[in-house]
């Protein structure tokens, strides 16, 4: 029925509007180069300030001191100092990604599914938008003021409760100190990303599971978490990459006492502390590979997860 009317409309329309169609396609062929002209600044910028500089480093990682192709720089990444810096970076990134995801998920579940007053939800979401941008120097200062040797919590615990955190082995300039600090932007990022996915969990799925005899625990075990799982996994890898590339907070917090990869690279760029420009490039390549893999995992999983939650 609708087919008939469509083709009828097309038939009558063709002769009458042929002139218009022609002139329109004329305009389009004329402007086609203009279209690319509009996109050109963007593409030129991307090539000159995103793609080529990165490739430059990637290529540089395979060029030796004598200017010839070599794998020596990659091999040299195996020195104990660099290996340990990658190891501490990976540990901090993993810990802050896992903790950030866990607590971010719990908070998101609480505000969306906990039947809290609706104002709380919008407050938390707004705060998350701000706090996820708090990474950097000021965040380090804030945590020094809180958990540093003279920080508020440290002092209160010592004077009021007689508990000295620093004597008990805690140090803000350590693995755990940095992890706790990173969670300050990791948790909000998790909340921002996972909230739409939790919204995508339809109320009817709970109800369908309930009529089929499932307890709330069984619903989450067999339905809720499996549906969120790809999103969770993807977001964890995004948070991992986010922490792995971050430097400002760590640098302001610990100076150079905690040798995470970006800080080693920072020192290398400033003063070639590794005494080998090629090795610096190889270090950069290592970072690119790790963050790129984590990001690609995120993107791939997210695209696959989207078809479920349509």
């Amino acid at each position: 029925m609708s087919n008939n009317t469509d083709s009828a409309a097309a038939n009558t329309a063709t002769p009458a509007s042929a002139g218009v169609v022609l002139s329109r396609s004329g305009v389009f062929t004329g402007v086609r180069w203009g279209d690319y002209l509009g996109v050109a600044p963007f593409l030129i910028f991307a090539v000159m300030f995103l793609v080529v500089p990165t490739l430059y480093l990637v290529v540089g990682a395979f060029i030796g001191r004598d200017g010839t192709f070599t794998f020596q720089n990659i091999v040299d990444l195996g020195t104990p100092q660099i290996v340990s810096s990658f190891w501490i970076s990976i540990r901090i990134s993993t810990a802050s990604a896992l903790l950030g995801s866990l607590f971010g998920l719990l908070i998101a579940l609480a505000i969306i599914r906990g039947r809290l007053p609706s104002a709380i939800r919008s407050t938390v979401m707004t705060f998350s938008g701000v706090a996820s941008n708090f990474a950097g120097i000021p965040l380090a200062f804030a945590f020094l003021s809180t958990l540093g040797r003279l920080g508020l919590i440290t002092v209160i615990l010592k004077t009021v409760f007689g508990f000295d955190m620093y004597k008990a082995g805690f140090n803000i300039l350590s693995f755990w100190g940095l992890t706790i600090t990173y969670c300050y932007f990791q948790i909000p990022l998790m909340i921002l990303i996972i909230a739409p996915a939790i919204d995508g969990l339809k109320k009817e799925w709970n109800e369908a599971a309930a009529t089929l005899g499932a307890t709330p625990y069984q619903f989450w075990r067999y339905v809720g978490l499996p549906i969120l799982w790809p999103n969770l996994l993807g977001t964890i890898s995004l948070l991992f990459a986010n922490a792995f590339g971050a430097i400002a907070t760590a640098y302001a917090l610990t100076g150079s006492s905690l040798n995470i990869v970006p800080i080693v690279l920072y020192a290398q760029i400033r003063g070639d502390v590794l005494n080998n420009p090629g090795l610096g490039a190889a270090l950069a390549l290592g970072m690119i590979v790790i963050t790129a893999v984590a990001n690609v995992i995120y993107l791939v999983i997210r695209t696959r997860a989207e078809r479920w939650l349509k």
Partner: peptide
Amino acid sequence: IIEFVTLLPLIIPPIILVFGYIRM
């Protein structure tokens, strides 16, 4: 293409970008 490019700055850490700039 454009959307991929807009994702690049999220994938490449700033320290890598500036390192590349300094070299280039």
